[in-house]
Design a protein around this nucleic acid. Structure first.
Lengths: 154, 154
DNA sequence: GCATATTGGTAACATTTGTAACAATCCCGT
DNA sequence: ACGGGATTGTTACAAATGTTACCAATATGC
């Protein structure tokens, strides 16, 4: 009785995630000395106009205290700012500052270049297969949840 | 200029890995109170006859001190044992004890059942696409480091 | 309206993790 | 055979992380 890890999905995903995340981190670490947590929060904020810390936590699958600290660091760099939501004053809507946006605009092309390079190496056919497979997985495991809902453990 | 994270491979992989790993962890946590690190080392050891800590570190993408500690814990449970390699006395060949093997034999079917359930939900076509895509990725990012002779059957 | 529960976010504390230094062993050229 | 350098694994200490408790604001139930 043996579990063949080379065929076991969590194992494969874990190794690939590690390898890819590490590769990509070289760019934002070298350029801006961002931690992984900071980069993840930052990238999310670059895409949305404003998010709450809870949103970031959900989409990044990072613990909320980790997010809290990442945001604090980004805030100190003046890359993000917070505005208390006037309708629900518990909420802090976090968004990029102009300075943050400039950094973002510089970082994104590097990431896209890396991604493009990868896709080229994969080839059209494999790339397509991958997209299809991942999309199917996401549909099963990442049912889009409304961000404001509570984080059920599972 | 925006990086669309839903299409960004490291982001997608990260979320999926988290979701799947968490799902799977429910089984070994509930049954045996294993940590993630312990489970990973354990699963590797179940598959090979014997591995060194360095091997485990490489294949699990875990830091070597983390591996060192996981092994210690497993050893205390009498699930694994170490034997100093007589040819190279720096090496410790780690392997499952009989007791460890029994636990492994109990755990593996649970994991396989989970995997099978997932594949069924994915469907044959998506599953095939996923396999293909991942295999291609692995070829690029996980160039097989030649396993040390330690891993081969002797 | 008022008490109570819930939510978003932070802080304090304890645990876990990684970095750096270490001992033991081996390798290799001389 | 010797010595510098590499490799394996552990440990001490510092940094990162998560658990828990907490505060403030809001929602809910009576």
């Amino acid at each position: 009785m043996t579990l063949i890890l080379e065929q076991f999905l969590p194992y494969r995903l874990n190794r690939l995630t590690e390898a890819l995340s590490h590769r990509v981190s070289l760019a934002y670490k070298a350029e801006y000395d961002l931690s992984r947590a900071e980069w993840r929060a930052f990238a999310l904020l670059g895409q949305a106009q404003a998010m709450t810390a809870t949103d970031i936590s959900y989409y990044s699958t990072m613990h909320k205290t980790k997010v809290s600290r990442a945001i604090l660091t980004l805030e100190k760099r003046r890359w993000v700012r917070r505005d208390v939501d006037e309708k629900d004053r518990r909420l802090e809507r976090i968004s990029l500052t102009q300075q943050g946006r400039r950094a973002y605009d510089k970082l994104v092309p590097m990431m896209q270049a890396e991604e493009a390079k990868l896709m080229a190496r994969l080839g059209a056919e494999n790339s397509k297969a991958l997209q299809k497979g991942l999309a199917a997985l996401e549909e099963i495991y990442l049912e889009p949840k409304v961000p404001t809902e509570t984080e059920g453990a599972e």
